[in-house]
Structures are given as C-alpha cells and as structure tokens.
C-alpha cells in the first residue's frame, strides 16, 4: 500500500496522441466503502472512440446486465468484438469492504489506449462503480483515480433483496455482507433520470423485518468516492 505515498498526479488530459502505443501496466481496485461489496470487476483497455457507458445516455443492454445483476459476460463479448485487452474478476468473486485486488494488462500490438473499470455494488438495485474511458498514461509511474457510484437508470431502487438479477427484473440479487433485512415494502419508484447518472445513494431503514427497505441505513449508504483505481505503468523493456 506504500505505493500511494509518492504519486505522480496524472497528466492524462494532456495527451492528444492517437497513435497506438504499447503499455505494460497493473490495475489495482480498492473497495473504499464501509459496507458495500463488489461483484466481479471488469477491467478493459479499449480503442479510442469507444466506451462502456456515457453519463446522460441510456445504458446499453450489456451494461444493464452488469449493473442489475453483476453479469459482465455481455460487456466482455462487446469488448472482444473491438479487440480490447481484458482482465476479468481479479478478486476471484466478491470484493469485500476495505479489500483490494489487481490485474496486469499489456496493450502491446493493439490500439487500446483507453481504460475502463466497472463493477456492481451489492446490495443495490443497479448501482455500479465506473472508471470511464480514461487515457492510459504511458509515462512509467503510479496514477490514482478515485471513482464514484453511478446509477444505470434501468431499474427502480426499491431496495428489496429478492434475488432479482436478470435485466428488467426488479429487486436486489443478493447481500454478501449479510447485514440487510427482509420484508421491505419498497423504497423508491422508477428513477426520474433513466439515463446513466451519479447515484443518489440508498435510503435503507433500521427495521430488519419490515419498513420501506431491506437495506440498513447505517451500513449500506456511502459517500463518494467508492472505489480507488491505482494504475501502475511499468518501464518497457527494450526488445
């Protein structure tokens, strides 16, 4: 964790280059929250002009499957079709609060100059953490990105833990931390903004058997940022 100590603050917005460049790098994801868990992360380097989501635009069906059920397989199929460099599920399952996981990527021989990271927060209806198509730094060093929670805009935030995970099915797929309740009557109707937007946080309540929500308001809320992404760009070895 000492890698946080000396940070080269990123200069990613300065690079306007469109040429392909090989980068050998590591991506670490850290769950910053006190009580939320993450479904398997998808980490991908992909070509310029592509992205997994755009705020203010409707979510794709593939993004919806990730945000509502933690299923990254459709996004992986989409990314493979554009030749992306992909790392799936570096944590080997759920990522608990305060825990971290990492994966190595190498874009040698590709035109994958952008980096995206997505994962669903549990227990929520359709909240996800997203690093959205940042330019991968090429200068060796450590780069830190603190990222917020988005709402995919595709499902009402009813906060009812019922196992519902398929796209379009209401409810929350599961509660890995086991601190939620049952018997909630439903915290919210459909989102006012049905495009991808910054999540407005959960409500929860303190009644484990009834009330408006199955979430616990002292456990399942968060303040942004919710994930820290640490990109470490390695020195390239001369051929």
């Amino acid at each position: 964790m000492k890698m946080f100590k000396r940070v080269a603050i990123c200069a990613v917005f300065l690079s306007g280059s469109t040429t392909a460049s090989a980068v050998d790098f590591n991506v670490e994801v850290i769950n910053l929250t006190n009580g939320l868990w993450y479904t398997p992360f998808l980490i991908a380097a992909h070509p310029e002009g592509t992205s997994l989501f755009t705020t203010g635009q409707p979510a794709s069906a593939s993004l919806q499957a990730m945000a509502e059920g933690g299923d990254i397989s459709f996004l992986v199929t989409d990314l493979e079709a554009i030749g992306a460099t992909i790392a799936e599920d570096p944590a080997g399952g759920f990522l608990a609060p305060a825990m971290s996981a990492n994966a190595d990527l190498n874009t040698d021989g590709t035109s994958n100059v952008l980096l995206s990271v997505v994962s669903m927060l549990l227990p929520t209806n359709d909240a996800f953490a997203g690093l959205n198509a940042i330019i991968i730094p090429t200068e060796p060093g450590t780069y830190i990105y603190n990222i917020p929670a988005y709402d995919s805009g595709t499902e009402a935030n009813d906060e009812i833990i019922n196992g519902g995970m398929a796209p379009g099915v209401p409810g929350i797929p599961g509660d890995p931390g086991g601190l939620g309740g049952t018997g909630g009557t439903g915290a919210a109707m459909a989102d006012a903004n049905t495009n991808v937007h910054i999540h407005r946080n959960t409500l929860g309540d303190l009644d484990p058997d009834a009330g408006r929500s199955d979430l616990n308001s002292t456990v399942h809320r968060w303040l942004n940022p919710v994930v820290r992404v640490v990109v470490t760009v390695n020195e390239m070895v001369a051929p």
Partner: peptide
C-alpha cells in the same frame, strides 16, 4: 464491522 480504515458512509 471490520477493524480496517474505509471511507465513512
């Protein structure tokens, strides 16, 4: 919940 530093909720 866990004896670890996290963000505050």
């Amino acid at each position: 919940q866990a004896d670890l530093v996290t963000m505050h909720s």
